[in-house]
Each structure stands twice: as structure tokens, then as C-alpha cells.
């Protein structure tokens, strides 16, 4: 198991790792309380309750991310060209000296 870099020391890390195999990791980890409380929906940060599969480092290719950032870059380039060559260079009265 990798060293937990966002988090605290080794002791708590070990405690956590023991429950790490389970899928909705975090519902269990909270101890006995969670269940009786009002619907989990009223608690912020419970997205990991909806995990249906654990994806490790090697099972995950961020292809969706690549698609999004490529679309973003295309927009950036298009807007830059428009702003620079049409809006800016197309204006009257430009400082030439």
C-alpha cells in the first residue's frame, strides 16, 4: 500500500488500511453511528458510498479527461486567434511607435 501523502502518520494509516479492501469503505469506517442517523443524503461528502468498483492505479486511464482538456485547448486556440487578429489587430488607432 502506498504511503498516504495527503494524510497523517503511519499509525492511523495502518488502522485505515485494514478496512481499505471493502468497497463502500467509508460507511464502515465511521463506526456504529452512521446507520441510525437521518438519511446519508443529508451528510456532505458521502460520494464514496456510491462506489460500485475500486479502480487502482493501473486500471484507470483518464480518457474522458483527455477529451475534455483537448476540447478546452481547441476553444482556447480559436478564441486567442479571434481576439488577437480580429478584435485587437483589426482596431483603428494602434500604437506604432
Amino acid at each position: 500500500m502506498a504511503v498516504d501523502s495527503t494524510a497523517e502518520g503511519a499509525a492511523s494509516s495502518a488502522a485505515r488500511t485494514s478496512t481499505d479492501g471493502g468497497v463502500p469503505a467509508n460507511a464502515d469506517s465511521q463506526g456504529d453511528s452512521g446507520q441510525a442517523d437521518p438519511p446519508v443524503d443529508s451528510i456532505v461528502g458521502t460520494a464514496d458510498d456510491g462506489i460500485v468498483r475500486e479502480l487502482g492505479h493501473d486500471d484507470f486511464d483518464p480518457v474522458g479527461t483527455l477529451v475534455i482538456v483537448l476540447i478546452y485547448m481547441a476553444i482556447l486556440i480559436g478564441m486567442w486567434v479571434f481576439m488577437y487578429f480580429v478584435e485587437f489587430l483589426g482596431r483603428g488607432l494602434t500604437v506604432v511607435g
Binding site: 495527503t6 469503505a25 467509508n26 453511528s33 451528510i43 461528502g45 458521502t46 464514496d48
Partner: peptide, 9 residues
């Protein structure tokens, strides 16, 4: 359990 504060590695 006011919030789910667990942060995964």
C-alpha cells in the same frame, strides 16, 4: 457523523 471527512490516498 456531521460530515464524511475521510480522505483517500
Amino acid at each position: 457523523r456531521p460530515v464524511d471527512s475521510y480522505l483517500p490516498e
